[in-house]
């Protein structure tokens, strides 16, 4: 019987201590961010989907069509095509697409890119209604930004 009462006392005390902890949390600063209305800055290191970078000096992308990103990608989600054009050294990029439905955001393509032509985008609000919305034409995107 004495065990019952000592349990009752220590038990009630432990519950009150617990309530004290939550009471402290009640008056501590709010950590919740009201997302659609408030936003947190994206970390500079954030690995979003890839994007062709614009070279400030030439005003266009830096891709040399070496296909190393295509080979490095474990998910085969990057397609790069280029062609020889007269008067231009090396190949000229004609197609650079990313199938974002397959991408696992590992960043191996960006590491493999010698001329630093691709980098991570900081976009994260990427909901869509159809599969086709996630087939990104990166060449078109970099031209639109130019």
């Amino acid at each position: 019987m004495s065990g019952y009462f000592s349990d009752l006392i220590t038990g009630s005390k432990s519950l009150l201590v617990g309530l004290g902890v939550t009471l402290k949390a009640l008056v501590s600063p709010v950590v919740t961010v009201q997302y659609p209305r408030e936003k947190i800055d994206v970390s500079p290191a954030f690995r979003g989907h890839i994007d062709l970078m614009k070279d400030e000096t030439t005003g266009t992308h830096r891709c040399i069509v070496c296909l190393s990103c295509m080979k490095a990608c474990p998910c085969q989600c990057i397609t790069v095509e280029g062609e020889k054009q007269e008067g231009v050294k090396g190949k000229v990029l004609t197609l650079f697409t990313l199938d974002f439905t397959k991408c696992s955001l590992c960043g191996l393509c960006v590491e493999s890119c010698k001329p630093h032509a691709i980098d991570f985008s900081d976009e994260y609000e990427l909901a869509g209604f159809s599969r086709e919305e996630f087939f990104y034409d990166l060449l078109k995107r970099v031209k639109e930004r130019a």
Partner: peptide, 27 residues
């Protein structure tokens, strides 16, 4: 969340880090 913030600033991701490479770390 504090740990995820710390790791995100280095690895670029919050859950699927993909940070280690054979021979070192990526960053």
């Amino acid at each position: 969340e504090k740990i995820l913030d710390i790791l995100e600033a280095i690895t670029g991701s919050r859950l699927t880090y993909c940070y280690f490479r054979a021979g070192g770390v990526s960053r």
